[in-house]
Design a protein around this nucleic acid. Structure first.
Length: 272
DNA sequence: TGAATTGTTATCGT
DNA sequence: AACGATAACAATTC
């Protein structure tokens, strides 16, 4: 399930092959994933050159001469070249033909992904929270975001309008490394805890990018971060810090992994 | 068969 | 009213 590090990895991988290329054709095999309709989408993008490939939150942004193309991978979306060895043609939902004859394919078994054209990329992203790896994402900024709400930490971290890019895996990893319980109220953190949370967010995301993301199953391949996860998917196994078995609970309808010893519910973390 | 996943939207409660 | 929590929904695999 691509979160910020996986999307960043994909953008870096495809950037050299896409920047400067002109789109000469587009096909959709799942029209409900394309906005606006397929016809106007195709009309808007065909003939345009991809000037830059960037990321915002979990979106891939293909900047065009006029406007831009947004791709959200949902939970099972991926990009492939149709001429790649071992290319799996199942679940192809859309394809772009490029001026060098190659065909970029969007595969998405669960169809949660979205493809959009916007006339101006500047209008996009205004409803999204700050990028946690940007230099302006300071401890002060995080403190203000936390204090503005009285919500449980985990759903707050997953809320893309508060902070952009975290998903279920990295939210759990962040809270473990910050030694904070997922249901702690966001407005009740001490200054020290805000600092720990800030550091954990940036460390986890940077490390995950360095490892090219997490590969659990067919949804995303090539990453190695799954070997570095400390709590996610590790229920019942010993905590890397204190050997207490990792617990799995449900918070805001999401499965949540934590160490009951290192992340106590009363918010008082033990001395490090 | 139920659980798992994201983001959006609707609905309920305080 | 505004905010937060909750549920439903889209679709598929294991």
């Amino acid at each position: 399930m691509p979160e910020l590090p996986e999307v960043e990895t994909i953008v870096r991988r495809y950037r050299p092959d896409l920047e400067g290329r002109r789109i000469v054709g587009f096909a959709s095999y799942c029209p409900q994933q394309v906005r606006p309709g397929v016809a106007s989408f195709r009309r808007a993008i065909v003939g345009q050159t991809i000037t830059r490939l960037t990321r915002r939150a979990k979106y891939i942004l293909a900047h065009l001469d006029r406007g831009g193309l947004l791709l959200h991978l949902g939970m099972s979306g991926r990009l492939e070249w149709s001429d790649a060895v071992g290319f799996d043609g199942r679940h192809v939902r859309a394809a772009w033909e490029l001026d060098n004859g190659r065909r970029l394919v969007f595969c998405d078994p669960r169809k949660f992904g979205r493809i959009r054209y916007v006339r101006d990329l500047k209008d996009f992203g205004t409803a999204l929270g700050p990028e946690p790896l940007e230099s302006d994402f300071s401890v002060t900024v995080l403190g203000r975001l936390l204090g503005r709400h009285r919500r449980q930490l985990k759903p707050l971290l997953l809320d893309q309008s508060v902070i952009a890019g975290l998903g279920n895996i990295y939210a759990d990893e962040v809270l473990f490394r910050a030694r904070l319980h997922p249901t702690t109220r966001s407005d009740q953190l001490t200054g020290r805890e805000v600092r720990r949370l800030h550091q954990a967010i940036r460390q986890v995301l940077r490390q995950a990018i360095a490892y090219q993301g997490t590969s659990f199953d067919w949804a995303y391949a090539g990453g190695r971060m799954q070997t570095r996860l400390q709590v996610y998917g590790r229920a019942g196994r010993p905590c890397p810090r204190c050997r207490t078995p990792i617990a799995r609970i449900r918070v805001a309808q999401r499965s949540t992994h934590l160490c009951p010893q290192c992340q106590p519910a009363d918010g008082r973390a033990p001395a490090s």
